[in-house]
Amino acid sequence: MIETDTVGPAGQAAMPPELQSPRAKLVYLYLSTNEGGTVSEMADSLGMKKIALYGVLKTLRKQDLVDRDDDRFVTA
């Protein structure tokens, strides 16, 4: 079995292997480096439409990779 590091360069969390979509990776990376964010913050920073972000966040929540705290999303 191949083992992967749980910590990436400079102590950052490694990208979960189940993330396949480039958008999901982008959103996850944003949340992990910014210690969370709102949909509006992500839309402004990432240049994505809110409707697209809601779809990505829904998928990430189903995979237990992201949690929601009121209007903020954070990595699980």
Rank of each mutant, 00 (worst) to 15 (best):
G36V: 12
D44K: 09
M48F: 08
R23N: 09
E35N: 14
A10N: 14
S40W: 14
E41G: 10
V74Y: 03
T38Y: 04
M1H: 09
D69F: 02
T59C: 03
D71K: 15
K25N: 06
G47I: 12
L29S: 11
Q20M: 00
R61S: 10
R68N: 10
R61T: 13
Y54E: 08
T33M: 01
G37I: 01
P22T: 14
S40H: 09
D64L: 15
V27S: 03
D44Y: 04
P22M: 12
A13W: 04
R72M: 14
A76M: 13
T38F: 01
V74L: 07
P17W: 05
L57P: 00
Y54A: 08
L57E: 08
L46S: 01
T59R: 05
K25Q: 01
D71Y: 13
A13K: 07
L60W: 07
P9Y: 13
L57C: 05
Y30T: 00
Q12R: 11
L29H: 09
D67V: 06
S21A: 15
T4I: 12
L19H: 09
S32M: 11
G8E: 05
I2C: 08
K58D: 15
V56H: 02
V27W: 03
N34V: 02
Y30Q: 05
K25M: 02
L46F: 00
S32E: 12
L53Y: 05
K50H: 08
M1K: 12
S40Y: 12
P17I: 11
M48N: 11
M15S: 05
L29I: 11
R23Y: 04
Q12I: 08
E18S: 05
Y30S: 03
Y28V: 00
G55Y: 11
Y28R: 06
E3Q: 11
L60K: 05
I2R: 14
R61A: 09
P22V: 14
K58M: 10
E3K: 04
D44Q: 07
E41S: 11
A76V: 14
F73S: 04
L19D: 04
A76N: 15
R23E: 14
R72L: 13
D70C: 07
K49C: 06
L29R: 13
E35M: 10
K25S: 01
E3N: 14
K62Q: 15
G8Y: 12
D69I: 10
P16H: 04
K25H: 06
